[in-house]
Design a binder for these strands. Structure first.
Length: 414
RNA sequence: GGACAGGUGGGUGAGUUGGCUGAAACCACAUCCCUGCUAAGGAUGCGUACUGGUAACGGUACCGAGGGUUCGAAUCCCUCCCUGUCCGCCA
């Protein structure tokens, strides 16, 4: 959630910055207006409440002195009715304000490039050169079917489209990758955490999935619970409604979970193969940091994910997302795109974001700083999407005879 | 799922015949005093959010959540959630 006081005081600046995310000035104006109205109405309410409290306290005094209490009572009954009315007014404004506020995305950092979609993303650097093949490299689904590594049709049979089944060495490699990634991240200081795959709506709201993106989530209707779309949700919400000690920061975590996404807006995209599934494995990095150190930690996370790809000898590039491609909660995001020789393209395999205090404000994650409570910064990033890493290995390590070599660093894990 | 017992500030834990209790006491923590060091002792401070004020200092709300009764609720009533114990079930 954005800082409403900041909006109040730096309105023009924020309007300008949120233009990168295609937010209209009118919406922000309305939000600003509601915030002022709420303050006024609340003040009226509090004056009435104050009066009620003061006079109620006269009762025991009157009774003690055996004075007549009826007139006072009548007065307070009238005042109480006013309070009830005013309370309703305040509640309505609060609800309306909340709807506006919770649906406005984070303010992009100044370095975020302007642009409406992924075509305006800016390449920062390339790591490792794509390998030259002396044959035409196949796409992963062809390899997967030929080797009996991926069973697409049975995945659909037992669940739905966009579900698949891994078999043989692919199944083993999926597991090996998870273990390898968690170990790799642990060496960089990201402590391993194992969290639930199901969370409540407070958690979803805390990290920004709700209320705006309900359609993207798998919901367990009867229970008011949701399947997580990423481990970012449980890992970040671990500290929801908590005041952390300054000396405990930064908190660096790494966790493996399955992730579940409806892919509601992706009809027709990547329908072939395993790029875009309703369920996929991912090892995630989440950090909770003091504001002044969050940029440093962001770089550390990007480096960690990039080095992980390098250690698997997978060519990739770093891309700074433009405003239009930036996620709802992010102030700044760098994507890692891995080279897929079969597709002859770089494809997203990791996305690392600094949400600044956006999620912290929603989730009320604070730390004590000189007796004052300050919002932390929260950061998240994939390290890596496991299924896509498997695909990348298949396409990059494929050989002329149609088999796939095992990356050196994975050998002891398989 | 059934039965019972509970949910109070960082922790332990008072307060349930409704009223100067936003909440005793103790511990922890912070600052200061005392002290050769340690230990002990003494003083003061110490919840969160919003809000008024340059500040001093005020106001409102919050005792699991949401409603209700009342002039007034941590205290009474209702609903829900959660925790503990026993039973059932189970990886």
């Amino acid at each position: 959630m954005l800082d409403l006081k900041l909006l109040q005081n730096n309105f023009d600046e924020i309007v300008e910055k949120l233009k990168k995310k295609k937010i209209k000035e009118e919406v922000l104006k309305e939000l600003k207006r509601l915030f002022v109205v709420l303050k006024e109405q609340k003040s009226i309410l509090e004056t009435l409440q104050s009066e009620q409290n003061k006079k109620s306290k006269l009762f025991p005094v009157y009774l003690k002195e055996k004075k007549d209490v009826n007139e006072l009572k009548k007065e307070l009954e009238t005042n109480k009715q006013k309070i009830t009315v005013q309370q309703k007014i305040v509640n309505e404004i609060e609800e309306e304000l909340e709807i506006y506020a919770l649906n406005i995305p984070n303010i992009p950092d100044d370095i975020v490039p302007v642009g409406k979609d992924e075509d305006s993303n800016v390449e920062i650097k390339k790591v490792l050169e794509p390998k030259e093949f002396d044959f035409k490299p196949k796409e992963h689904w062809e390899l997967g079917e030929n080797l009996d590594w991926i069973d697409f049709t049975r995945g659909v049979k037992i669940a739905q489209s966009r579900f698949s089944v891994l078999k043989n060495d692919a199944a083993k490699m999926e597991r090996a990758l998870i273990n390898y990634m968690l170990d790799f991240n642990a060496k960089r200081g990201f402590k391993e955490v194992c969290v639930p795959y199901i969370v409540n709506k407070e958690s979803m709201r805390g990290t920004g999935q709700l209320p705006k993106f309900e359609d993207d989530l798998f919901k367990i209707e009867a229970e008011e619970l949701y399947l997580i779309p990423t481990a970012e949700v449980p890992l970040t919400n671990l500290f929801r409604d908590e005041i952390l000690k300054e000396e405990d920061l930064p908190i660096l975590m790494s966790g493996y979970t399955a992730c579940f996404r409806k892919e509601a807006g992706s009809a027709g995209r990547d329908t072939r193969g395993m790029i875009r599934q309703h369920q996929f494995d991912k090892v995630e990095l989440v950090s909770i940091a003091k504001p002044e150190e969050s940029d440093k930690i962001f770089d550390k996370m990007v480096q960690c994910a990039s080095d992980l790809l390098t250690s698997l000898v997978l060519p990739h590039r770093l891309v700074m997302l433009c405003g239009g491609d930036l996620g709802f909660s992010a102030a700044k995001t760098i994507d890692l795109e891995v080279w897929l020789p079969g597709q002859n393209k770089y494809r997203e395999i990791s996305s690392i974001s600094n949400t600044r205090d956006f999620q912290a404000r929603r989730a009320k994650i604070r730390y004590k700083n000189n007796k004052k409570n300050k919002l932390v910064h929260t950061l998240n990033g994939s390290s890596l999407a496991v299924g896509r890493t498997l695909i990348a290995i298949m396409e990059n390590y494929q050989q002329k005879d149609g088999t796939v070599a095992i990356p050196e660093v994975l050998k002891k894990y398989m």
